[in-house]
């Protein structure tokens, strides 16, 4: 009975019940790099702190705390385990899809919650580079303007897809993309398909509402 429609896998549950590597005392931890992403107003926020072995360029410890849902908790818990002992460069490239795989899959409408951890981790790695004077290593994720009229970038489209936009119309609602001259429509539709397939494999699950 309990399993019927239970939207989370056993691994997600396990990490949710017993989250690993929580950052309880930041002062005592003394991180070498710290990254924060999200915003409490949007309902999700993540802080990731790392310790780094300077010589080897390896993450030795990764801690986190969050204002987030079950998916955010479980995926960051998994991520924090995955990246311990990893090279900084490899850790930087861990994708939401890999985390998701490790977790055994999340319900589709929860995936946007699970990208917080890796975003915060990248911020923490950049922060480490900055603190240790390796400015040249700091990477910026460059955005490309897709819709000139409304000044909407591909990042914003990706973000909107992760937040639930599945159709061109929903993208327009969320980002106002392609609502003026319409010249960007084809480009936007292509990106929509691309990001959908990048982040989601399953078919749309209905969203629950509070009745």
């Amino acid at each position: 009975m309990d399993k019927v429609n239970w939207a989370y896998t056993d691994t997600v549950l396990e990490h949710f019940m017993h989250p690993k590597n929580i950052l309880t005392d930041e002062d005592a931890f003394q991180p070498d790099g710290r990254g924060m992403t999200g915003n409490v107003k949007c309902g999700d926020q993540m802080v990731v702190a790392i310790k780094v072995d300077r010589e080897k360029g390896i993450i030795t410890d990764c801690r986190w705390k969050t204002f987030g849902c079950a998916s955010a908790i479980a995926s960051t818990s998994v991520l924090s385990e995955m990246v311990k002992g990893m090279k900084l460069d490899d850790a930087y490239r861990v994708s939401p899809k890999e985390i998701n795989k490790e977790l055994g899959g999340l319900p589709e409408h929860k995936i946007h919650c699970s990208v917080l951890g890796d975003k915060a981790l990248r911020a923490a790695i950049n922060d480490y580079y900055e603190r240790s004077g390796m400015q040249e290593k700091v990477r910026r994720e460059e955005a490309r303007v897709v819709c000139n009229c409304m000044n909407v970038t591909d990042h914003e489209i990706e973000e909107a897809v992760l937040e639930g936009a599945r159709t061109f119309y929903e993208l327009q609602e969320k980002t106002k993309v392609s609502t003026v001259c319409g010249e960007c429509k084809e480009d936007v539709e292509r990106l929509l398909e691309y990001y959908k397939s990048k982040h989601f494999c399953s078919t749309d699950t209905p969203r629950p509402i509070l009745t």
């Binding site: 309902g43 999700d44 849902c69 929860k110 937040e163 639930g164 629950p208």
Partner: peptide, 12 residues
């Protein structure tokens, strides 16, 4: 119980 939290509803 129920929640009106965004995460439970799929919208932000």
């Amino acid at each position: 119980v129920s929640t009106g939290s965004a995460c439970a509803s799929g919208s932000l």
